[in-house]
Design a protein around this nucleic acid. Structure first.
Lengths: 150, 150
DNA sequence: AAAGATACCGGCAGATCCACGGCTTATAGC
DNA sequence: GCTATAAGCCGTGGATCTGCCGGTATCTTT
């Protein structure tokens, strides 16, 4: 892996990010490559760690978590174990980013109801001071990276 | 669709969220179902919109975006078109949530370098006042929902 | 008790994946 | 200029998986 991606690699990434289950022959058709050449490209991208996996996306509301919130957590000391334990226990915490700035962590939390969210925030508030924002809507659902303009 | 998920459905969701390319026969083996029964379950989940798609995950740093930041945007008026145009144009914006609270939008932004991030924040700052936090690390990368404790 | 609905299983035809060897092009060294 | 090596691509064939079919067991409905 020359650590550089050409236009074909980016085209492959765009397709598999859009549809992770696209057959290799169809993928090859879209990027103008044979199926076997496409296979080699994909395997190389996987082996290099560029593609880290394939995952199904699940509608949170449809599985009983209609409430989504962003919680920022300001940590007084440097005790990280309690947070990690909470991440292990509370599956309602979907994502956790450690950031610069006044708030050390930014969390994405799913809840079944407002009381449920309140309870989750209470648990987080035992670790530090929290700031909670409810998500109205995903204006832009997560999308992966694209090829930069040249 | 009875609009309710049983334990087997949740087991299927857990597996396909972990590995979106798992063959149906192997999936069936893991959830103690035949391949055809598994197929029907998965199709039902897809048709009901519970599973919204399958996507490859890409390592941002490996494709040239080592800098990740959370930008909160406070919007003075209610002009949403400029933001939507920016979302269409700037693929470096990976996600955008509209939230309650002082800051109307929370964005996740990927950049190739600090100057690049600065430029992106400058563009966002033309729309409103911004608060930017650089992401040190993904303490917990996004994980999907799990079955609630009963 | 019979009819219907639901969920499951097994089997088969067709599609897909995967590993192999051969072909072409690019590069380096002599 | 020529050869050796490597990288990338292609086509093929066997193994696997998927999609569709009918059949069975359980539960509900009438």
């Amino acid at each position: 892996m020359t650590e550089i991606l050409d236009a074909t690699d980016w085209a492959i990434l765009a397709e598999v990010q859009r549809d992770g289950r696209i057959p290799l022959t169809e993928l090859g058709r879209r990027v103008n490559l044979s199926a076997s050449a496409t296979t080699e490209r994909v395997k190389r991208l996987e082996a290099a760690g560029v593609i880290t996996g394939y995952h199904a996306a699940v509608d949170l509301a449809k599985v009983g978590f209609p409430v989504l919130a962003v919680v920022r957590l300001k940590y007084p000391g440097s005790q990280h174990q309690p947070l990690h334990r909470l991440l292990d226990e509370r599956f309602e915490i979907l994502e956790c980013l450690r950031t610069t700035g006044d708030d050390c962590y930014t969390l994405k939390v799913a809840a079944a109801s407002m009381p449920h969210l309140e309870q989750l925030v209470n648990e987080l508030a035992r670790l530090g001071s929290t700031t909670t924002n409810i998500v109205y809507s995903q204006t832009l659902p997560y999308r992966g990276p694209r090829e930069p303009r040249v």
